[in-house]
Write a protein that binds this DNA or RNA. Structure first.
Length: 580
DNA sequence: GCCGTTTTCGGCCCGACTGTTTTCAGTCG
């Protein structure tokens, strides 16, 4: 999509304007526009000017710039701006702690053009002596460069959350802190995380901060104050701890949870209502009287809004919905009745049916679908026709003995590069549940891969498309695919789309989940469990669903067993008509 | 550059920490 390209250019324009010292609100406008275009599930190339202006943060001017970029490939002013700012200078802004003012200074005095030069000069202590720069600043610049070299700025949620929870329990044990809570993008369940934000109250903040910066995994202390400290831990993750008074805890939690854009919107509303919101509370502007802040709900209540769950706080329309009273009633983990993507040791899973049944029942589930890989996936010991039929027989036998729980016969069939499935219809039609997914040929063209998914959807026996984009967060990009086109087909054929809850997948993501909901496509949230404790991944999937504004009724595995089986049957007959 | 049931012009969120500073600018979130 051209969206990401435009977002990149708008962000670069913001960088360049920042170095020039331009109007900060203009800079903010470019960044906001970039963010909203980036997160848009529609290709801006296909939008009219009127539709562009409906995107928050896009006005007459930027809409025109986008339109002309689509037709001419150029964004006016951008080239001129690049000429005004020395080549490569914007790159310096990627060094943490180094902002536009310092970049400008380094460029004008020392003509530094890239990070390599900056590093060399800092090592030779040639930066010291510039106005406002001494040894310590030099040291911090080198530290910042080290952080860049260490690589990835954002880590997958699934890698960070376990570390964060471990940190919490350690802090509970070692520091005089109360009410410890995760905040920031972790609390919003964003799919990648830049740092771990922790909020707490304490009667002895100084002592608590000391305990924090001396935790065993702390590698470096970035800053340390009485109410806020930041450290770098061994995994290379930054951890911020903020300590506030109890009466401010709710306001601080709202502030520290973000997103920044959501908070800005709230604070703007507050100003208009004669209020002031900061991390200490909600105050009346006229006499600074505290109106609330102990509970997070206070913030929303005093603005006349219903409580907005953290997963929605991205300034993607949740404030408008709250004002109109149309916030979704979000899906809860307790709504999930079963898992529709589970592997056994017959293919590449690790457990028997009995072990899986017990684990699922322990979670209160009513059913699981057994979806072993099929023969196309040799590497995962995929099952051939004979073995699948064998498994069906075994499941039928097990089901006869079960009370209040049901195994669905199923498979995760491979969608081959030649647009066919790797099991014949005669076998598929004997299964309760068929997930179809792509495991190879990722480099095919957008048209080819889209056609593969569409062909699978048009097979009457397919129930759901699993991990529809094939991405592995931080490891492998999604293949090129027209998901919107795939969604339209799924809508016509009455099929579901999966949110794969495996933490490195989270596929489809929140933005497309919202899109699917808007298009009326049923969603299955499934864990792709290979080992028992991976059933716990459901929490990640539900959170992606919540970030996508999903309600219980949008998700098929919130249905009871009978209703689900009915739905599956209907998906078959609906799909059958579309057979091509 | 965006945006408006108080505005089509004049606003635009708010505070902590650091380093280099005699009172604050820069950066970050």
């Amino acid at each position: 999509m051209v969206n990401q390209e435009i977002a990149r250019i708008f962000n670069e324009i913001a960088d360049l304007l920042e170095i020039k010292g331009d109007n900060p609100f203009r800079i903010r406008a470019y960044r906001r526009a970039a963010q909203n275009i980036d997160g848009l599930p529609k290709d801006v190339a296909h939008l009219s000017e009127k539709e562009l202006i409906e995107i928050p943060g896009i006005g007459q001017d930027l809409a025109g710039k986008i339109e002309r970029y689509i037709s001419t490939g150029k964004i006016e002013g951008y080239e001129d701006l690049k000429k005004e700012v020395p080549e490569g200078l914007a790159v310096l802004l990627t060094v943490p702690g180094l902002g536009p003012k310092t970049a400008q200074l380094l460029s004008s005095k020392l003509h530094i053009k890239d990070i390599a030069e900056l590093e060399a000069l800092a090592r030779e202590h040639r930066l010291s002596g510039l106005p406002g720069i001494k040894d310590k600043t030099e040291e911090n610049i080198l530290k910042g460069i080290e952080m860049i070299k260490r690589g990835k700025e954002r880590l997958p949620l699934g890698r960070v959350l376990p570390v964060a929870n471990e940190l919490l329990s350690l802090l509970r044990e070692k520091a005089p802190l109360q009410g410890l809570a995760l905040a920031g993008s972790l609390r919003r369940w964003k799919e990648t995380i830049k740092d771990i934000d922790i909020l707490a109250t304490s009667g002895e903040p100084e002592k608590a901060m000391n305990a924090f910066v001396h935790l065993p995994m702390v590698k470096d202390v970035l800053m340390k104050g009485p109410t806020k400290s930041s450290v770098l831990i061994t995994e290379g993750i930054q951890v911020d701890l903020r300590v506030v008074e109890r009466e401010s805890f709710g306001a601080a939690l709202a502030y520290f949870t973000g997103s920044k854009e959501h908070n800005i919107r709230l604070r703007e509303m507050a100003v208009k209502a004669g209020l002031k919101i900061n991390e200490y509370g909600i105050f009346r502007e006229s006499d600074n009287k505290r109106l609330g802040g102990e509970k997070e709900e206070d913030v929303y209540r005093l603005l006349g809004l219903p409580y907005i769950p953290p997963e929605l706080r991205e300034d993607r329309g949740e404030i408008e919905a709250a004002l109109k009273g149309t916030l979704p009633r979000l899906l809860e983990i307790e709504d999930i009745m079963g898992d529709l993507h589970v592997h056994t040791k017959r293919s590449d899973g690790s457990h028997s049916l009995d072990e899986l049944i017990k684990a699922a029942r322990d979670r209160g589930y009513k059913y699981i679908a057994v979806t072993d890989h099929t023969k196309g996936l040799g590497i995962a010991r995929g099952l051939n026709e004979e073995k699948i039929l064998e498994e069906i027989e075994e499941i039928k036998a097990v089901n006869k003995k079960l009370r209040g729980f049901r195994l669905l016969t199923g498979a995760e069939v491979d969608i081959r590069s030649d647009y066919t499935l790797d099991l014949p219809d005669e076998v598929l039609k004997q299964l309760d549940f068929v997930a179809a997914s792509v495991h190879s040929g990722f480099r095919q063209s957008r048209e080819q891969i889209t056609k593969r998914l569409v062909s699978a959807i048009r097979n009457p026996f397919v129930s759901v498309i699993a991990h529809p984009t094939g991405r592995l967060i931080g490891e492998r990009d999604a293949y090129e695919v027209d998901l919107e086109g795939v969604f339209r087909e799924a809508k016509d054929a009455g099929k579901a789309i999966e949110i794969n809850a495996y933490p490195l997948r989270l596929d489809i993501n929140d933005v497309y989940a919202k899109k699917a909901k808007e298009m009326g496509i049923p969603i299955a949230i499934s864990t792709d469990t290979h080992v028992l404790n991976q059933f716990d991944f459901m929490e990640y999937g539900v959170s992606i669903g919540r970030r996508g504004w999903l309600e219980k009724s949008d998700v098929i595995n919130t249905m009871g067993t009978e209703n689900l089986l009915k739905w599956l049957k209907k998906a078959r007959s609906a799909g059958g008509h579309r057979r091509s």
